[in-house]
């Protein structure tokens, strides 16, 4: 038993290492191939040739590409992602500040998205072709076809500017800044842990709109997928068996059908969570949310390659982590996926 577990763990670790190595290699090469000269960004285009050459040597850019890559790899392994040329901070500390903002947004959004999407999808499958189904179709079609920045702006205009029901852009009102010592970086968690309930509720009021917006899109996606998986499962023979046994309709739907539909749903949920984590760039932009999405976008516009590389690495790592997590949940939900 422990040997089997160990072997599994090793294969997990190997997959993780290989994936991240591949990701690093690809982003590294792309970053070096693009016609952006980081030396000019540093010394300016009017610098004399000897200053330019010195800066170039300092950055290690005069070395062959493979050597540069090994140095980069060694730096990354020792936790050094380089310095951002725009913020002037180490990329790692920038990410430590921006990633929790995205994580907080994405996590609340996916929880709401699952909480609404799955019941709606189940209802649509059970009452297929009747009004709940049509309602859900319209709701998700709207979700697919309305641009998020427009919806975000309208939501801000109505609920913040006009009605003043919620907080505006950003994560907190200025008055609440720097009250709570960041620990996890998730403002709601930190504020609650510190007992600063004013800060907590202010953070919540700022979260409501972007979370609602992102949750709406994941809800639409999760709901559609739940519907189709449930229709598949409800047509299967074991559902007839459950009915033959005299199981109540609720039990047939929630225990038998959803128990099986949950297996493919894991992938759907993991994918939409990953999508949210990778930075819902437009949403973060509209709400001036200082998250990873806007950080990477800003870095791209400023040709800040160290920041782009670091951000991409974090996004990639969270993808891999989510994959591993969903594989574990898979094995938990589906006995056929358990290793012998």
């Amino acid at each position: 038993m422990p040997a089997r577990f160990l072997r599994r763990l090793i294969s997990f670790a190997l997959t993780l290492a290989l994936t991240l190595f591949g990701l690093l290699a690809v982003t590294f090469v792309i970053a070096r191939v693009v016609p952006i000269d980081p030396v000019i960004a540093l010394v300016g285009d009017k610098a004399p040739a000897d200053v330019y050459a010195a800066a170039r040597a300092h950055l290690g850019l005069d070395l062959p590409l493979w050597q540069q890559f090994i140095i980069y790899l060694r730096d990354v392994l020792s936790g050094n992602l380089g310095s951002s040329s725009t913020t002037g901070n180490p990329v790692l500390s920038d990410i430590a500040h921006t990633f929790p903002a995205t994580l907080e947004l994405a996590t609340y959004a996916i929880i709401v998205g699952i909480g609404l999407g799955i019941p709606l999808g189940v209802a649509a499958a059970v009452w297929q072709g009747r009004w709940p189904d049509h309602l859900i179709r319209v709701v998700s079609l709207f979700g697919y076809s309305v641009p998020v920045f427009w919806l975000g702006l309208v939501a801000l205009l109505v609920f913040y500017a006009r009605l003043d029901w919620v907080g505006g852009p950003g994560r907190l009102d200025i008055a609440y800044d720097y009250i709570v010592e960041p620990w996890s970086g998730l403002l709601t968690v930190d504020a609650a842990a510190a007992g600063e309930w004013d800060v907590f509720w202010n953070a919540v009021s700022h979260l409501v709109l972007p979370v609602a917006l992102l949750a709406y899109f994941s809800m639409a996606y999760i709901g559609r997928m739940t519907r189709s998986f449930m229709i598949d499962e409800l047509g299967k023979e074991y559902i007839t068996t459950a009915r033959v046994k005299g199981a109540s309709e609720a039990r047939v739907i929630w225990r038998h059908a959803l128990g099986n539909a949950a297996v493919p749903l894991i992938t759907v949920v993991a994918l939409s969570y990953a999508y949210l984590l990778e930075g819902a760039v437009l949403t973060e932009t509209v709400f001036a949310w200082p998250g990873l999405g806007s950080y990477i976008t800003q870095a791209l516009f400023d040709a800040d390659m160290a920041a782009v590389l670091g951000g991409t690495l974090v996004v990639g790592a969270s993808f891999v982590a989510l994959n591993i997590f969903s594989e574990l949940v898979y094995a938990w939900l589906d006995p056929r996926a358990r290793m012998k």
Partner: peptide
């Protein structure tokens, strides 16, 4: 067919 008539995840 018991392959289809039994719930695969229970």
């Amino acid at each position: 067919d018991p392959k289809y008539s039994l719930n695969p995840t229970m």
